[in-house]
């Protein structure tokens, strides 16, 4: 089976039972994507397929051959953080960090959905073709990602900050905060 992960083509012989999550973690050693509940309830395994967020734990890898998949490793690196990664650090968007890769992949997919005008359960006007990502909209749209440390308020702040127009000079990243 051939997969396209973070722009790289990889081939693996897999049992049809292998989930996309186990392919990433156990076969490709991309351990940024986390296994939380393994039943679609927590969102820790969120990855992007053709830019859309999904739960890798409920996905059979065999169904995702030849489709561009992006994991947290494909979004940013330690020397070149993704704007959301920087914002999560600056706004205390995590404590233990276990849910963070899923939160960030989910937020990337969420912003793309909103950009395409996809409504949510709290969108008042279904006829509108643009979405105003208010605090309530963000909370609803991120409800598929649980944080058991309770950093949800920081997560929402981080996403709001990452969405804001870039300042003329980027603030320095605080790397010693924790």
């Amino acid at each position: 089976m051939r997969f396209i992960i973070n722009g790289q083509s990889v081939e693996r012989a897999l049992d049809a039972r292998t989930s996309l999550l186990d392919l990433l973690r156990d076969h490709l050693h991309l351990t940024g994507t986390k296994k939380g509940c393994n039943q679609g309830a927590c969102g820790a395994c969120t990855v992007l397929v053709e830019g859309e967020r999904i739960n890798a734990c409920l996905a059979l890898a065999v169904q995702y051959q030849e489709r561009p998949i992006t994991t947290i490793e494909g979004l940013g690196e330690e020397v070149a953080l993704h704007p959301l990664q920087r914002a999560f650090i600056e706004h205390d968007g995590f404590q233990c960090g276990y849910c963070t890769p899923g939160q960030i992949c989910s937020a990337v997919g969420m912003m793309a959905e909103a950009g395409r005008g996809v409504p949510s359960a709290v969108t008042a006007d279904l006829d509108g073709d643009s979405v105003d990502l208010t605090h309530d909209e963000l909370r609803e749209r991120m409800s598929g990602n649980l944080c058991r440390c309770g950093a949800h308020n920081g997560i929402i702040e981080a996403i709001q900050a990452a969405m804001a127009p870039a300042p003329a000079q980027a603030a320095p990243v605080k790397e010693d905060a924790r």
Binding site: G40, G43, T46, E52, R53, I54, N55, L58, A59, S106, G109, M110, E113, P119, S120, A121, T123, L126, R141, S143, G144, N145
Partner: peptide, 14 residues
Amino acid sequence: RAILAGASAQIRNM
């Protein structure tokens, strides 16, 4: 509205 009231965004995408 019924679809948007169900599951999570990730699951609705799948």
